[in-house]
Design a protein around this nucleic acid. Structure first.
Lengths: 337, 337
DNA sequence: CTGAAAGCGCTAACAG
DNA sequence: CTGTTAGCGCTTTCAG
């Protein structure tokens, strides 16, 4: 485009250096001059050429530290793929990602690692506990930008959160359940992790709210707490299924997939079943018509987006425009895997 | 990164200019020198810095011509949004998009416009007729890259096609229909545009194939040809519904939405109904539980992708890596609009 | 066929 | 507080 920094400088009667200072909110500019430059920018409709900027900046080093469970957790291996993809896309810069994997580590050792990390930005997926909140707060108070992803952390001064809209995913599950149980009077079971966790509760709330609005024919027979453990999931679901002989549907808001599958198979019946996420076990269950739908929360995007957001912040000082970025909820059937 | 053009030049004992010539396959390099440079590139693992390249190239002008119906067609207004988004993202270049809108024009006048267009690249969504094929072929034979989008054109020398996987969308519709009609013996009607159009036929084939594989309980009662006209759709569906008293489901592979809605409402019954695409009428039908699902073919992406592909081709000489880019088929329920 | 030099738009370091 | 200058990595003249 025509309108370069130089054009602005000429119009404002200053040098390119000064324009740069104004554009990037750097100190040492007389308010009066700043005004003049801003006016020129406005008048010309100038916007900086990102290639030029990128080129000038590519000698700088950028480091972001990513804190999350690690590749052992299938879901997070997809998230990590997103992080790596973002990193590759930024290959023309001196851009580094340090990982702190938390899987199998004690809170203390993780916190120590975070405290010791020398980095310019942090993205973190961890439990929303007081001790974690405190640790993150220590980071943000050092003016280091932090983005939470996958699972939000409260009261910690983070820039923003990137993750699934859990309430919405519950509502979507409800619409699917309604379609599976078209009009017939039916009882369904909700399999949950633990309702004390706010995240788990959001899905259930969405599910129940939406059913209440448009599916009076569907009744919740049970909400099972499973702690996401195999044994608990299996037993709770097994018991509930044999306790109520007339269950038609199961919503797996959370819980241990194999535990649930075991209980369902053992019952010998076919239920309307909606699950969350994608894993080999879930794919197989879809193919075998044990599950009818699953709701997928783009894990790739959950890794990719925070990196890009932090990079923009570091490089251009652009703060994320939202405090919450919801990733897509996608409905998956057996035909889509 | 460290390894710049200069590093390669030094190692190969040539100048940066020569490295550039080799990298970009330009003429006037002694084969022997070329070898030497290539070896150095290999050894250093050099890959050009795209910011530097972009900066050097941003004085050049790029023009692509987009041929498609126009904003009057709701679907294409979303496609156009994708084109504009791509254009904005390329704002740092001298990049232009010329439009040739075909809506309401005769084939002759459109063809004349294409023939007269002075452009460096073309993206086109048009009918796959012999006369269009010939016109496009004339363009490609002038070494002007062409990408077809939304609807492919055969035997025309195009670079690639960007659009929906129609067969797959039919299969997905089948899986949804199966879920809506869980196990019960049921008859369904397929509403089509015209089976003579290969595009329309693909959806139907996918639907029928998938049902055949796993839903023996579902029978096709009728396949209606509607030419996508209101009257024909309305009458054909009305007649078919009253002709078979036991229809349970309707698959709107194509056809006029309002015509179909009219017929369904008039019947006074609730059917399992799967549609395609998204429009205000379809959104309302989903909200009102007249349709249960619709399958969405990311129109935005259909506009965005071809622009980017052509730009890469023009700027870097990179040919699209695939001959067909399928855009996402997304399942939509009333909770997702 | 090849090298040297200019310059794309921007930032940063140094003078003043 | 502000101007000048030297590149960032690349392409493109223009000489030779």
């Amino acid at each position: 485009m025509k309108i370069s920094q130089q054009a602005v400088a000429d119009l404002a009667g200053v040098s390119r250096g000064t324009v740069d200072r104004v554009i990037n909110n750097k100190p040492n500019v007389k308010p009066e001059t700043r005004e003049r430059v801003l006016a020129a920018v406005e008048k010309l409709g100038y916007s900086p050429n990102s290639n030029g900027r990128a080129l000038a900046l590519c000698k700088k080093q950028f480091t972001v530290t990513a804190v999350c469970p690690g590749p052992e957790v299938p879901f997070f291996s997809d998230v990590l793929a997103g992080i790596e993809a973002a990193k590759n896309e930024l290959g023309d810069f001196n851009f580094y990602v340090d990982y702190i994997f938390t899987y199998g580590k004690t809170s203390e050792s993780v916190i120590a690692e975070i405290d010791n990390a020398s980095t310019q930005a942090v993205m973190i997926a961890a439990e929303d506990t007081p001790i974690i909140q405190k640790t993150v707060k220590k980071v943000t108070s050092r003016k280091i930008p932090v983005i939470t992803f996958n699972s939000d952390i409260s009261k910690c001064g983070r820039l923003c959160f990137v993750g699934q809209n859990l309430y919405k995913s519950g509502r979507i599950a409800a619409s699917l359940m309604q379609n599976l149980l078209r009009g017939e009077k039916a009882k369904v079971i909700i399999v949950a992790g633990s309702q004390r966790f706010q995240a788990h509760k959001a899905r259930i709330d969405g599910f129940i709210d939406a059913l209440g609005e448009y599916a009076a024919n569907i009744r919740i027979a049970d909400v099972l707490e499973t702690n996401d453990e195999y044994e608990k999931t299996y037993h709770a679901l097994s018991d509930s299924l044999s306790g109520h002989s007339d269950i038609k549907g199961i919503y797996l808001a959370s819980g241990h997939i194999n535990g649930a599958l075991e209980a369902i198979l053992e019952s010998g019946k076919k239920y309307a079943a909606v699950a969350n996420d994608l894993s080999p076990a879930i794919e197989k269950a879809l193919k075998d018509d044990i599950f009818d739908f699953t709701i997928y929360q783009n894990p790739f995007e959950q890794g990719y987006k925070p990196v890009m957001l932090l990079f923009d912040y570091l490089l251009k000082g652009i703060k994320p425009s939202q405090t919450i970025y919801y990733t897509d909820n996608t409905i998956i059937t057996k035909e889509m895997i």
